[in-house]
Design a protein around this nucleic acid. Sequence first.
DNA 1: AAGAAAATTTTACAAATGTTAAAAAACGAA
DNA 2: TTCGTTTTTTAACATTTGTAAAATTTTCTT
Lengths: 187, 187
Amino acid sequence: MENTIKKILSLGLKEESLPKLLPLFEKAEFPKGHMLIKAGRTERSVYLLEKGIARAFCHKDDKEINFWLGAESNILLSYNSFFLNTPGYENIELLEDSVLYKISHNALQNLYLTDLELANWGRRLAESELIKAEECFIARQFKTAKECYEDFITTSPDILQRVQLGHIASYLGISQVTLSRIRAEIR
Amino acid sequence: MENTIKKILSLGLKEESLPKLLPLFEKAEFPKGHMLIKAGRTERSVYLLEKGIARAFCHKDDKEINFWLGAESNILLSYNSFFLNTPGYENIELLEDSVLYKISHNALQNLYLTDLELANWGRRLAESELIKAEECFIARQFKTAKECYEDFITTSPDILQRVQLGHIASYLGISQVTLSRIRAEIR
DNA sequence: AAGAAAATTTTACAAATGTTAAAAAACGAA
DNA sequence: TTCGTTTTTTAACATTTGTAAAATTTTCTT
């Protein structure tokens, strides 16, 4: 669980607190296409993606729209459902055969409410996700479709190779036709 | 500091912890047009907006683009700068004469690292902002400009009255001409 | 109230993106 | 391989949105 531990420690958790957290994780493997999280459910787990790729999407009318795409070392959860304990609107699907580590809401909550070091780790986790979310939002407001795609190429070249373009277009907020045009233009 | 306390308690802080937190806040008043936070600075304060309206914006080429707009009971900070202790890219300007409560990074950090209850409060604060940030991002991906404006009317009718339309157009990610067209269509 | 300044709307045209459908290319299973 | 399916690209056209500039309305000041 190398990727998972790397992710955990990157948020400044002290090494000595690792033994409190790690035993709560449970390894889980799922095939490509598995729906890890489904809208309408109240999700009581968080996952760390050890190996694989996942997309988060919502439904707009009859279409699916991706709003997140990520590979190894990412956290998978429905913010809305997990934090507020209500049915979520997010779906998360695995786009490759994947290995994950799963931790339950209860287990995590118990740690948070009894262990200062881990409570602060959880805070930093949320803060770092918040920075990323804001950056995504701002990038979308600032940039043309072409700029967004160019950013994507440089920040996630691996995902570009491993995921079909329709998913990437949806994630970038453009139609697949537009993405094709951009790709033709750059080439 | 009614609005500020309401905001603090809404995140599930126990009443008995309030006396630890409140004395750290310092009241501050600024006139309309004051730049509370400037890009390039490393910001060491968070503000709670007791009275007034603020916008957060970045520069794109020579233009300003709003990415946040809020009134009373909102938290004002540069996520990037405050959490990571680096120069931020965000600017925050007050759009009305405003009353704020200010707390320093050091004071807050001391509390977080010594008080379990407050560390968890800080975690929930970041989590709730994260949910909002994600919702904003998704809404923008999902909705047409017209739908975004209609949402804005219903969720923030007060801001619509108090802020000029150019700022709202920028926040909605559209030109002012497009906003005018939408308004003419709805009328 | 009158004039100046600022904000908003309107107009005309250009550029970007979406939709639908067809063509081409890539991929997989027998 | 070869056929059939899926994915990607291309084409044609419609729609949306942006830009620049002018017209109008609102706001502020004297």
